[in-house]
Simulated scan of single mutants.
Amino acid sequence: MERTQNKYNISVLLDMSKSAEFVLTSAIELAKRIDGAIEVFHVKPTTNIIKGDSQLSAVRTLNKDARSTRAELKELISTIEKKENLSISYKLEYGNVKNRVRDYLALQKPDILVLGKPRTRMGVFFESISDFVIDNVNDTNVLILGEDDKFHSFEDINLGIFGTGLEDSDLEIIQDLKCDSDKPVRYFGISDEEDKERTYPWQKTVSYTFSKGGNALNGLVNYVSRTNTQLLCVPKKGGKSFMFKSSPLKEVIRKTNVPLMILGK
């Protein structure tokens, strides 16, 4: 996507599942809040189409599928454009999903990438893409939305921060999300990883610190929902400081049932 006059360039990675409209609408709400421009990116896997087909048959199948997929994508975007009265650009590519996503992110370098993450075990495809994106972006913030999230607006949102590692470069987007809201930002941490005497630019911070232990992360994640936190911000660069067996970042992604903003700036 071309750099725009907007403050943020937002890319939306759509899988065209039943949650696609929700993910795109949520991205639009985010764009309204922080002055963003939106581009949709969709990759259609070709492996299953080509396998077992003759070359001519594969080409015909791809062309037919291309028209169908593009029409479906354009219909979704057109419907939302009319509803929201704004213009949304899009890119449609074919091939290996991970390779295309990696190349797109390297070329476009969006400020924010928005994607969905199904909560069920059936969502293996997008769970792997979530992991892949986290592993392959360094300067892009990633907003991950579950299909059961009921996110209607970013206005006056209840924000939370998980763990240490919040850097000065992460503060700007949090400030833009808070805007003029007087609500406190909630800090969730494990005792050994708690920031010491950290000063934040916003007026109010409420801390919830859990004792280190095998069930600490589960307890913390459950408490995030109980505090009505609507968006949990997780600094990517702080992940290595947590004392868990597997990647704490990916554990939070899998277990947390609220929208997540992985701060990669």
Results as ranks from 00 to 15, higher is better:
D192E: 14
T164V: 13
S246G: 12
Y208G: 02
L231S: 10
K212I: 10
C233W: 02
K245M: 14
K240A: 14
E251R: 02
N158W: 07
N222E: 10
T199H: 13
V185K: 00
D180A: 11
D182I: 04
S241D: 11
S241R: 13
P184K: 03
W202D: 08
L177F: 04
F210Y: 09
G239R: 04
D168S: 11
F162E: 07
I173L: 15
K250G: 11
Y223N: 09
S191W: 05
G160L: 06
L159H: 02
V252D: 07
Q230M: 02
L217G: 04
G165V: 08
L232C: 12
G160P: 06
Y223S: 13
C179H: 15
S207A: 05
F244H: 05
N228T: 05
F242D: 05
N222S: 12
G219Q: 08
D180R: 11
F244Y: 06
S191C: 10
D176H: 08
V234Q: 06
M243V: 07
C233Q: 08
V224S: 02
D180M: 13
P201M: 05
C179E: 15
L217D: 07
V252I: 15
M243I: 13
S207V: 09
L217Y: 00
G239P: 07
G238N: 05
T209A: 00
V221L: 08
G213K: 02
T205C: 06
E251S: 06
Y223P: 03
I190V: 12
G238D: 11
R198H: 10
I174Q: 00
E194K: 00
V224H: 01
P235C: 01
E167P: 04
E172C: 08
